[in-house]
Simulated assay, not measured.
Amino acid sequence: MIGLMEDYSSWDYLPVDHIRTPAFNSGVVSEASNGNKEFSVSLDAAVPDDILERIFTLLPIASMIRATAVCKRWYSIIYSSRFLWTHMLPQRPWYFMFTSNETAAGYAFDPILRKWYDLELPYIDKSSCFVSSSCGLVCFMDNDNRNTISVSNPITKNSKRLLEPPGETLPDYSTIAIKVDRLSHKYSITVAKSKQVPEDFVRWYFSVYKYDSWSGTWVTSASEVFIGWRGGDDSVICNGVLYCLIHSTGVLGNVNPRHGVIMYDLVGESSGTSLMQTSIPVPCSLTCGRLVNLKEKLVLVGGIAKHNRPDIIKGIGIWELHEKQWHEWHR
C-alpha cells in the first residue's frame, strides 16, 4: 500500500465544492489573415447542442459536473439530456471511506482524476449503516433500527428520505440493494429482513420488500419461513435478479457449507417458487462472503476457511456465477 501511495504522489485533496468550480473560459483569438486583428470567439455559440452532448459523454463524471458551472446552457444540457446520461463511457467506480464511527463524514477518491474529495452525506447521522450503490446513486439504511432509508447523489448533493419499509421494525438481520435503470433513470430498492421465530431455534422468518421510485411505494415481494437457515447482511441485484447471502444456523447439522445464495426474480416476481428451492451452495467452506455486481454478473468474494477450523481464514477466493455454477477466478 505504501508503494502504491508513493506512485500517486500527484494526488490532490479537494473539497467536493471544487467539482463545481468553472473549468473553461472564452478567450481572445488572433487571426493572422485579418491584419492581426483580435476578436472574441465563444465556444458556447459555435458548437451545437448535439455535439456538446457527445463531448460531455467522454468526460469523467467529476469533470462533467464541474462543467455545469460554466454557463446556463451547459448546465441545462448536462442535467436535462437523456442521451448524455445513457451514452456515457463506463466510469471507474469511486472509492469511499468513512473517517469516523460517530459522524457520516468521509472522503471519496476519483481514480480517473486521482483526486480525493471531502463528501457530506445528508440524512445520515453516523457511519454505522448498510450501504448499496448503483450508477452514482448511494442508498443508506441505518444500522440501529433498519427502517431509516435514504437515497443520495453525493456529487450533486441531492438526497431523499424514503418511507419506512413494511415488515419487522427490529429484524435480527437485514440487507439492502439498489439498482438504477440507465434508460429511464428510475431506481428500485430491495430490503431483505430475517427474524427468528419466537422460542424456536430452527425456524426463521425471511421477507423481501421492494421500493420503486416511479410509484414511491413499498410492496412485499416474498415471504417465507426458513428451516435451519437465516438471512444475512449482504445482497445485490444483477440483471433484474436479487441475490441474497444466507447462513446455516447449524441446529440441524447442516454446518457445511455454512453459506448459500438464494435468488429472487424481481421482474417475473418468482410467483409460487420457494426461495430455498433457488438456493445455490457456495463453492467451498467460507468464513465470510460478499456479493458483487460486475457488469450484471454475480461475483462472490469470500474468505476460504481452514479444514476443520471453519472460523479461521486461510485465503481469499473470487468466483463468478454462471448458470447456477460457480467458476473460480482466483484464490
Rank of each mutant, 00 (worst) to 15 (best):
W74R: 01
S128N: 15
D110H: 05
I112T: 15
V41W: 06
V70I: 10
W94P: 00
L58H: 13
P111D: 07
T103G: 03
A108D: 07
A62S: 09
L89F: 14
N101D: 12
F39L: 14
H87L: 02
L58W: 12
A45G: 11
S127Q: 04
L58Q: 12
S80N: 15
L89C: 13
Y75H: 14
R66P: 00
A67W: 03
Y75Q: 13
D110V: 02
P48G: 06
Y123P: 01
S128A: 15
C129Y: 00
G136D: 06
M97D: 14
C135Y: 09
S100W: 09
Y79T: 15
D125T: 13
D50R: 10
C129S: 06
A108F: 05
I51E: 09
M64I: 08
R82K: 15
C135N: 14
S81K: 02
L119I: 11
S76L: 11
A46K: 12
G136L: 03
S42T: 07
K72T: 12
I112W: 08
R54D: 11
R54W: 08
S128I: 15
I55W: 03
E120L: 09
T103V: 10
L58F: 11
E120R: 12
F109W: 08
P48K: 09
D49T: 13
G136T: 05
V41M: 15
D110A: 07
R73V: 10
N101G: 13
Y75M: 10
A62I: 06
L43H: 09
L43M: 14
L43S: 12
D118S: 13
P48A: 08
S132V: 01
T99H: 10
I55E: 01
D44P: 09
S134A: 07
S127H: 05
L113N: 10
R82V: 14
A104F: 03
S42F: 08
T86R: 14
R54I: 11
Y107G: 01
S42Y: 08
A67Q: 04
I78L: 07
M97R: 15
A62E: 09
C129D: 02
P93V: 04
I51Q: 10
H87E: 07
T68C: 07
I124M: 02
S81I: 06
F109I: 04
I61L: 09
W85T: 06
L52Y: 04
W94L: 01
I78P: 01
